[in-house]
């Protein structure tokens, strides 16, 4: 399968107050981007449990984005500080379990940054296409588990 035929499965966790609004603005501005991602709304980037990411990637989802408010702008004082710390650590751990750290992208998008949302999504989809499906990795592991 060539990179172009490959439609990765990607989820983007967006916080209600900034990045989800930024994604809405991208829509209102009719900014075009690949279809290969689904937004899941959470109230704050701090709600995204590291465990979700691991479960998501090992369930065969090819990439995960966590998008929050800019540092200092979190609606809940400093939730994104927590998220930033959690995911910096998690990114390092992903390597250990054999998941390419680039399959997780953590970034900040404000309510006025529709264009930034478009750029991040487009770049990320591109990167995940290069990396290929996680599925192979997951099935390989499944096999190992049962051996």
């Amino acid at each position: 399968m060539s990179e172009q035929d490959f439609h990765p499965r990607i989820v983007a966790f967006c916080c209600n107050w900034c990045s989800y609004a930024g994604a809405d603005l991208a829509g209102v501005s009719r900014l075009q981007m690949p279809t290969d991602f689904q937004v899941i709304r959470v109230m704050c980037s701090a709600r995204v449990a590291p465990e979700w990411i691991i479960k998501t990637l090992s369930a065969g989802i090819d990439g995960v984005m966590v998008l929050g408010c800019h540092i200092g702008d979190c609606h809940y004082i400093a939730g994104n500080h927590r998220a930033a710390k959690r995911f910096a650590l998690l990114k390092e751990m992903l390597g250990f379990v054999g998941i390419h750290p680039d399959r997780l992208r953590v970034d900040w998008v404000s309510a006025s940054e529709g264009t930034k949302f478009q750029t991040i999504v487009t770049e990320f989809v591109e990167r995940v296409r290069e990396l290929g499906p996680t599925r192979e990795f997951v099935t390989a592991h499944r096999r190992l588990d049962t051996d």
């Binding site: 499965r9 989820v11 704050c44 995204v48 609606h75 927590r82």
Partner: peptide, 30 residues
């Protein structure tokens, strides 16, 4: 905000409307 939920090591904390189960179910169907 749900920050405590993500932090809880024993999965005893949950958030109404954003439970682990709800979110993971959304992911598992795709």
């Amino acid at each position: 905000c749900g920050s405590c939920v993500a932090a809880c090591p024993s999965k005893a904390m949950q958030q109404r409307g954003f439970t682990d189960q709800q979110v993971l179910e959304m992911i598992s169907v795709i």
